[in-house]
Amino acid sequence: MDLALVGFVAGALGSMLGVGGGLLIVPFLTLVHGLSFPAAVGISMVGVTATSVGATGRYFAKGLVEVQLGLKLEAVTVLGVLAAEPLFRVLPASTLAVFFAILLGFASWRMVRGEPAPRREADEPEAWLDRRRRWASYGVSGVAGSVGALLGVGGGILKVPVLTELLRINMHRAVATSTFMIGTTAAAASTFAVLAGRVSLHDAAGLVLGVLPGAMVGSRLAPRVPQGVLRRAFGLLLAWVAVMMLRRAL
């Protein structure tokens, strides 16, 4: 029952900010349920998949998802994840964590202080994007995929700032696109974790019972929340993650 309640809150907040909700689920499972970190991450991945599945339908129906751009960025992120192992041999994890925390801190400052990005209309072709910004977004997505995989950070915490700060997509569309994108990677990671026997399906099902309705509620609320509020909330979330990463690294 407590899993379903936490799942509901994680699903609602995760779908409103495009992050999936793992930042809430993993600490709850490790601290309250006493699960090991790998076991908690496995169950959390199922929860993130549920957030994406529960919210994506609504975001598609509202025409908020940047399908082609999202799929391209996702492909580059996956390549970055695959390149993570060689990178890990070159740089120690603590150095990467500090670098990543600085990057998140900068993105947080931009989102809390910066002006909202100009609004994009639905069905507008990608040609409006500055070519240099597009290539920069692919580069950052690839690096973020590598570093995120090494440090156990992923999903929308990396994708939303790339979409809003580099590609200047408005916050509502960035959240919707990120929510759609994280479902694919989370489902793949969950499948591997389930097959490896790292996921308690009983706990995962309890979580899913709450996450699915939570994500549906969150996806209905998100488009009604002003962009500025969403940006500041996300910026504060980034700052918190950056501080936690610095604490772990130093």
Partner: peptide, 11 residues
Amino acid sequence: VVALLAVPVIF
């Protein structure tokens, strides 16, 4: 759980 994990692939 398997039905849930299949949905993003179906998307």
